[in-house]
Simulated assay, not measured.
Amino acid sequence: MIKRAVILLVLSSILVTLVWVRHQSTAPVNNISTESHVSSKYTTVEYKISKIKGKKYYGKGEDGEEIVFSAENIVSGENIQVDDVVICYFEKHNLGKGLVKVEEK
């Protein structure tokens, strides 16, 4: 019985330590690129449109990062052509949600 109590105490201590360390550490920063601009609500990244195929737009950033988005993401029906530079807006604290909107620069 004492043996089980000691094991439970040790495991509980380890769990508390891990929770405390996780709470004290900061979340990793998702650095999209060195050319990204940060506004109060969104993180923005500039891409140059390299190809348009149907309603899909393909872009490439200065750092070589590529993006594909649909015409539905474009704000107010702007007429974007190949070699145009666009600004892509992502939620500042939730990049995983995806692209919020796209507008021509």
Rank of each mutant, 00 (worst) to 15 (best):
M1Q: 08
M1W: 02
I2H: 06
K3V: 01
A5I: 09
A5Q: 06
V6D: 02
V6C: 02
I7F: 12
L8G: 14
L8F: 15
L9H: 06
L9W: 05
V10F: 11
V10N: 04
S12R: 06
S13L: 13
I14T: 06
L15V: 08
L15R: 06
L18K: 07
W20K: 06
R22K: 14
R22L: 11
R22H: 13
H23M: 07
Q24V: 08
Q24H: 11
T26I: 04
T26V: 08
P28M: 01
V29H: 05
V29G: 04
N30M: 08
N30Q: 13
N30R: 06
N31K: 09
N31M: 11
I32P: 00
E35S: 10
H37E: 15
S40V: 10
K41R: 12
K41W: 07
Y42P: 02
T44M: 15
V45H: 05
E46C: 12
E46K: 14
K48Q: 09
K51I: 05
K51Y: 10
I52Q: 01
I52F: 05
K53Q: 13
K53C: 08
K53T: 12
K53L: 12
G54A: 03
G54E: 02
K55E: 06
G59Q: 00
D63I: 00
G64Q: 03
E66N: 09
E66H: 07
I67R: 00
I67K: 00
F69T: 01
A71E: 02
E72I: 10
E72F: 09
N73I: 11
I74F: 01
I74W: 00
V75N: 08
S76A: 14
E78S: 04
E78A: 07
N79Q: 12
N79A: 13
N79C: 02
I80G: 01
Q81Y: 06
Q81G: 10
V82G: 07
D83A: 08
D83L: 06
V85Y: 13
V86Q: 02
I87M: 15
I87L: 15
Y89C: 13
Y89H: 15
E91C: 09
H93L: 15
N94W: 11
N94C: 11
L95V: 07
L95T: 05
G96I: 08
K97M: 14
G98Y: 09
L99A: 05
L99H: 03
V100L: 09
V100R: 03
V100C: 06
V102S: 03
V102L: 06
V102D: 02
E103W: 07
E103Q: 11
E103R: 10
E104G: 10
K105Y: 08
